[in-house]
Design a protein around this nucleic acid. Sequence first.
DNA 1: GTCCCTATTTATAAGGG
DNA 2: TCCCTTATAAATAGGGA
Lengths: 169, 169
Amino acid sequence: MGRGKLQLKRIENKNNRQVTFSKRRSGMMKKAHELSILCDVDLALIIFSARGRLYEFCGCNERRWIRILNTFQVEGPRIEQLRLSELIQLEQKLDGMLRQTRRRKTQLMMEAIACLQEKVKKLNEQKQLMEKMIAAAESKDALQHEDLVMEQAGNNSKPPPQNVVLQLL
Amino acid sequence: MGRGKLQLKRIENKNNRQVTFSKRRSGMMKKAHELSILCDVDLALIIFSARGRLYEFCGCNERRWIRILNTFQVEGPRIEQLRLSELIQLEQKLDGMLRQTRRRKTQLMMEAIACLQEKVKKLNEQKQLMEKMIAAAESKDALQHEDLVMEQAGNNSKPPPQNVVLQLL
DNA sequence: GTCCCTATTTATAAGGG
DNA sequence: TCCCTTATAAATAGGGA
């Protein structure tokens, strides 16, 4: 595109290269954004500028990063190809992420456990309370309608009290 | 581009959406490739198709993946935002990668150590050999040029034999 | 899905400030 | 470096097979 036709090879003029980088980078970012909206897909575009260690980034949330991580073993770095210094760097990175992940996981699980314990406790209290109520109601029925109690015994007395309580909640 | 002007919103017609996805995806891949060549930069373009778990990928080698990993803490998933099931998945992924990395690191280090030990052994052998040669040469000099030996004593005798040997190799 | 075609819209190379 | 302009090269929507 543009005034001249483009050869697919490294642009040697430093200034032109920088200008082209800037233009095409923003062009790609725009297209990436359009694609994600138009077609409703997840995508990531990551560009490292040649000098410096700046990078660009587009359209990724937490979930997408996980998916990107999942591409690692398929298309990602073949560990065998890395040098020792790179392995050490990678190890530190992974170790840090893993620690962070485990800390958060532990935290969530502890919260979930505490929450469930609380629920169990409350339910047990309610259960005991209702068992008493049922027992009271039955003894009352026994006094006022002895005949009915005899008829419905198969329905009301068979299921253990817990079930009655649970169904009520 | 094309016959009609495009609205930046999800394409509702499923067929059109799929066609557009396919066209634009290949267009972006091409542009990504061009950018990496023309401007000599590292970049990654990762696209997840809406259905299925297919992904596309472009222009990343081992080194680039490491750089991508490095963007994690800056722009990557905020661990705090993930759900328990995602954390577990992430943990397994990281754990596997970390094991693999450490295994390879250990392997490389062991190789390096063995290699260096070998070198040290050889050097020590050479050192001992040359110490003997030097000792022999000195005693020979002492017999033939007692005066010269006396003059050069400050230069030749001061440095310990090891240094002499190391400089020779 | 894919490939081809063509009218149009976009992207962008080159150049100047 | 960024912004503007303009001529041109590319990308692509819509449609057909």
